[in-house]
Write a protein that binds this DNA or RNA. Structure first.
Lengths: 234, 234
DNA sequence: TAGATTGTTAATCGATTAACAATC
DNA sequence: TAGATTGTTAATCGATTAACAATC
């Protein structure tokens, strides 16, 4: 009797929920990366968790756990190789393979992102921009063409674009997201302060300025409201 | 024998760590607020947790807990008053009292924020901008003067500015933060991808695009790497 | 070898969720 | 009243931290 188990069955059995990493750890990886690149520039080749932690305000064991998700292996007593660590983080995050992206909404924020050359070092290349404003369509901004929104879905499909960036006003954001989904885009980076309705398989990340603003103003308000002696928590 | 307990002692005894709210709850409050304002615009005056939750993809009890931090009291069976809820959130977050802010770094991102009129509804007014680029100094952007960075500390002190926004390049951010601290600024909203070193009592919130980008690219990379059958986690 | 640092398992802590009581 | 919804206490879950073993 032959038991028929193919590769994907095995993988599903071994990791029923897919290999995973806590969201907070994921968010810290770019910070480690940034620090490590600085170290590499200074010619430092080995580093320990305690030193990384001291720089970022984290305890060593947390740094160690985070780094372990990338698959890196350190040496007791001498720590990690800076170069290997950078490599491990970049590979883990998929920064070696560039994601091509479309951006919609060429206002100040959209323009700022279009001009951000550094993104290409982090696996992101914005290849074209879209807008509905006819005065903007046809322009070139930071070497990227501004095209009419109607062309997005078709072009996304033909160019196999997987990532969409929404920097348009809140009112237009849902319609833009719908176009992106129609074009087969898999992930949306949303800067508009709206909850987008998209199919389950679409990855959405919101860059929500108002959440940050809320934290800031709550803390400021509290500081000027409560007695001076009290300590800052949260 | 008289026991001398003054007000602030009492308050310290009653809430040794100061009244607090989990960070995730705080971040969700603006989302409730946004939805509630929409409801109010539509003339809806009462709302239940389940409906709010359904809209934002949260379970009712979580919404209820979050809202309780604002001190709001609902009525069983009929839910909450939309108007009261909006009021409660705004008061809780301190959005009734405007925070005046200085912004440093008048690039595309800085300009975008300067032009964002809506902030004034959320307790934030940017009153002046600063830069080191002499071609920008002296200009007016969205009705705000662009001043030389050297004047920041002195002006912040004289105008009692408590909030600073950093939208300059990463290399300059630490120096800008130092100036802000010198000027007595209490809280910093940092858009530069650097870990700022400031005294303990300064509130710093980072708007870290690279963290979001890391999540997105990791999820995209994983999607195109792992077998199709696997489910999306995290 | 001794000591520093990684790797790993267990305990703790905080946020979320479940269960249920209170109330309109 | 019965039923819907809030309010609250207890259980669960996930991330952080502590403790300790392994290794260079």
């Amino acid at each position: 009797m032959v038991i028929d188990i193919n590769l994907s069955t095995l993988q599903r059995l071994k990791r029923p929920e897919a290999p995973s990493i806590p969201q907070p750890s994921l968010a810290r990886l770019p910070q480690y990366h940034h620090y490590l690149v600085d170290l590499a520039d200074k010619g430092i080749s080995r580093i320990s968790c305690s030193v990384i932690g001291a720089y970022l305000g984290l305890i060593p064991v947390q740094v160690r756990k985070d780094l372990q998700y990338t698959g890196i292996i350190g040496k007791p007593k001498t720590g990690y190789s800076v170069a290997e660590l950078i490599q491990a983080i970049e590979t883990f995050l998929g920064w070696n393979n560039i994601n091509e992206a479309f951006l919609v909404g060429v206002g100040n924020l959209g323009t700022a992102l279009l001009g951000h050359e550094r993104f290409s070092k982090f696996g992101l290349r914005i290849v074209a921009a879209f807008d509905t404003d006819s005065t903007k369509i046809g322009q070139w901004i930071h070497e990227k063409a501004v095209l009419p929104l109607e062309q997005l879905a078709d072009l996304a499909q033909r160019m196999s674009i997987h990532l969409g960036i929404i920097t348009c006003p809140a009112e237009a954001a849902q319609a833009v997201a719908d176009e992106m989904v129609k074009g087969g885009i898999q992930a949306i980076w949303n800067f508009a302060p709206v909850k987008l309705r998209v199919p389950d398989h679409i990855i959405v990340h919101n860059e929500d300025l108002y959440s940050t603003l809320a934290s800031l103003s709550w803390k400021l308000a509290r500081r000027f409201r409560v007695p001076v002696q009290e300590k800052e928590a949260v």
